[in-house]
Design a protein around this nucleic acid. Sequence first.
DNA 1: GTGAAAGCGCTAACAG
DNA 2: CTGTTAGCGCTTTCAC
Lengths: 341, 341
Amino acid sequence: MSATTPSTVTIRDVAQAAGVHVSTVSRALSPDKRGLISEEVLRVVEEAAQRLGYRPNRAASALRTGRTHTIGVLVPDITNAVFPPILQGIEASASARGYFVFVANVMDQALARPIVERMLAQQVDGVVLAIATRDDPLIDYLRQVGMRAVLVNRGDERGRLPAVVSDDRLAMKLAVDHLVATGHRRIAHLAGPQGVPTGVARRQGVEQALRDCGLPLVAVAECESYSREAGRQAMAQLLAQPERPEAVVCCNDLVALGAYDELRARGLRVPHDISITGHNDMPLVDMVDPPLTTIRLPHRELGWRAAETLFDEIDGRALSASTVVLRPELVVRQSTRDCTV
Amino acid sequence: MSATTPSTVTIRDVAQAAGVHVSTVSRALSPDKRGLISEEVLRVVEEAAQRLGYRPNRAASALRTGRTHTIGVLVPDITNAVFPPILQGIEASASARGYFVFVANVMDQALARPIVERMLAQQVDGVVLAIATRDDPLIDYLRQVGMRAVLVNRGDERGRLPAVVSDDRLAMKLAVDHLVATGHRRIAHLAGPQGVPTGVARRQGVEQALRDCGLPLVAVAECESYSREAGRQAMAQLLAQPERPEAVVCCNDLVALGAYDELRARGLRVPHDISITGHNDMPLVDMVDPPLTTIRLPHRELGWRAAETLFDEIDGRALSASTVVLRPELVVRQSTRDCTV
DNA sequence: GTGAAAGCGCTAACAG
DNA sequence: CTGTTAGCGCTTTCAC
């Protein structure tokens, strides 16, 4: 029956109750300083702390030590199914280390800088960014102010910050190779926004993979964003071309689903008239009609590793490998047909 | 060209640069105290702060004032598509008020209490809980320690804490009425876990709605959790009964999709052999096969209102209505057939 | 309208 | 091993 007092009990109260000095209490309750304290006193202090329901005030400790045990995470849109698992991985890692995670939803790229400034004021121990654009000035800013930071999902081409990403080129190669192996020849690409690293890398991945097979990229349309509606529009553009492609490699699942929308509106059938591939393996894409052939990413691990990398930085353990690249994997379902049979 | 110094610039530096006392700087930079300062000094201070790149240390201010400008949010599983929009609403509200939000993913209900304790230590100004179980002892604990809190999505039957929820009974009534209007008579229910308020309320909603129509509830199976797999299992149980229902009202979309899985495995077709309804209108349920008839909730608004309620509490603005109930809405798609034609 | 001084709760030298 | 002392950066009385 610990009488958890609603009123604030401080280290002084504990010291008084235990009949020792506050600094002794501080030491006794600090995991790495408790070795300095005698068994006897340790017991008394712990008992008193327990009894009074003492909870060290993190704000005070933060002021003194400069460490808040908090990190910030900036995501572009938490409603996009890619990010929750990443966040979960980050949170799991943070939680295991006694850290809390501020989640900021950066709907507008222009808000990123002010948000980082507020996080700086909030004294976060570091940030993980899932919002880096190409040549993002934010990255320079972070380095300039000495804020520890790690990129996730989207890396930095110039390697200014550690990053944990998936292999976008390989992902696209997996998709292209699968299509080619199943007899597709006229392959097009629905590319992501060329302002973000993933958009560029995936496009290059498609181009390279096709080149490796000695095949042309018959058409490309760039999506305004990674959204269903943008995918629909881009697909419409693609279909405005004289000759219809046999298959379309999409930069992500949402875009692929947008392609479905446009195709359905025109009475075209997937995969009968055209094969479609996605990227991400979002929840439920195995249940859409037809189930989507896509690329699966280890999202949760992406987040976990990013957080671990950040904590390594925070604890002064400099990493050898600054960029971690995780392997994506092909998931074949029914949106791609076998033209060889 | 603000020379943002990497080294920490404090209020003392600003005071010195501006040739005034620190307390004057503090007042000048505080929105509600700046009235006490002369135009002249205000200008000088602001210029100096700007030039030096001063950012008030929140940890110090928190220690002094007891307010951290942070809130915590506890969600059961951020990977469940219901929560991201709720979180987004919370975050939008918090951000607009200069607050940051800690997101904690409470995978195991037993971890809720320790997490709340850590948040208490972290001096959060309040919490919003999306994880309340029925008669949750956590609620009493929060009241006991005087932590401001608001429930979202799941309310408390005893009204111990303010809550923002959707009308679960109405939701189920909308589903039942639609089925009845389209000629279904033998209606069953895939119920949510009866340990959480929503599971109970939705089940009661189905029962009441059916009673209102003078129809029996032909069968009920309780799901272990709000998951696709649990839905599949519960559907299997339902199909083990001698007579097959014409329609099944599911406690949520994931469960409904699990029902799809089981039905498909048995070669039964939706809605030809059996009609299915969901709840939540998750992203992509309009694209599954067949598109799911479901209940749409104002998730984002749920989160927004919950946060606003919390801030009202924090600012001492006691609310009149302690529980806010938002209206769900029926979305008819193709998982329910019209038996009257 | 501004300055002086105290102190929020904690940790970390420094003594002993 | 434990106590003493100082101070993190800020806000808020209290004077003037």
